[in-house]
Simulated scan of single mutants.
Amino acid sequence: MSARLPTHLLVGALLRRVNDAGGLAVVRASGEPQGGALLILIVEGRGLRAIERMRGLDDRDALIPAGPSSDDPVMLEEYWQNRRRRDRDLWVVELDIPHAERFVAETILSH
C-alpha cells in the first residue's frame, strides 16, 4: 500500500503553483481533507472540461476525463454539483491557465 498525501495538501500546492504562474485557481467546493476525491474543472476558452484523480489497479494515481462530453458548460456545472450533493467528501477545483492538465499532473501525480 502506498502513502498518499492528504487531498488538502495537494489542493493547496496546486493552487499555489497555478496562482504563482499567473493563472487562476479556485476551490469551488472543499471536501474531506485527508482522502476526498478530487475533480478538476479546466477553463478552455468559453468552455469547461473536467478531469478526475483516480487510483488504478496498480495503486498509482491517474487523471481521467470526467463528466459529460458536451461542450456545454452548464451541463458540466450540473454534473459536478450533482456529484457534490451525493459525495460531500468531493473537492472541486477550477483552473484557468494554459496547459492546466500539466500543472495538475506535475502536482498531483508526482506524489
Rank of each mutant, 00 (worst) to 15 (best):
G67R: 02
V74L: 11
P65G: 02
L95W: 10
R49A: 09
N82E: 14
R88L: 08
R83C: 09
R53T: 15
D59I: 09
R49M: 13
L90R: 05
R85D: 14
E77D: 05
G56V: 00
D71Y: 11
E78Q: 12
L95I: 12
D61I: 10
L90Y: 02
V93F: 00
R83W: 12
D59R: 15
Y79M: 04
L76C: 03
A50I: 12
L63Y: 02
M75S: 13
Q81P: 08
R85P: 09
R83T: 01
R88D: 07
D58M: 05
A50P: 09
P65I: 05
W91D: 07
P65K: 05
E52I: 07
E78P: 05
R84Q: 00
D61L: 14
A50M: 08
R49N: 10
E78L: 03
Y79H: 14
D89Y: 03
G67V: 02
R85Q: 12
E94H: 12
G56A: 04
L76A: 06
N82I: 10
E52P: 09
Y79R: 14
R86G: 14
V92Y: 07
L57F: 07
Y79E: 01
I64H: 11
L76M: 06
D58V: 00
Y79C: 05
A66L: 00
S70D: 01
R83A: 04
L57T: 10
G56K: 08
P65S: 03
N82S: 15
R85V: 10
W91I: 04
A50R: 09
L95Q: 05
P65L: 02
D72H: 06
P65T: 02
E94W: 02
R86T: 15
R86M: 13
I51F: 06
P68A: 03
D72G: 01
S69F: 11
D71E: 14
N82F: 13
D87F: 09
E77Y: 00
D59V: 08
D59F: 14
M54R: 15
D58N: 03
M54C: 15
M54K: 15
A62M: 06
L63R: 07
L76I: 01
R84D: 01
D71W: 11
R86C: 13
G67H: 05
A62D: 06
G56H: 04
R49S: 12
R84S: 00
M54F: 12
G67C: 02
Q81T: 13
L95M: 06
G67F: 05
R88V: 04
R83M: 10
R53N: 11
M54A: 15
D72F: 06
R86Q: 15
D59C: 05
S70I: 02
P65F: 00
L76Y: 05
W80H: 01
R83D: 04
E52V: 13
E77G: 01
A66Q: 07
L63K: 07
D71T: 08
L90K: 06
V92L: 10
L57W: 07
P65Q: 00
P73Q: 02
D71I: 04
D89M: 02
D87G: 07
R53V: 15
E52Y: 05
R60W: 00
R86H: 13
V74K: 09
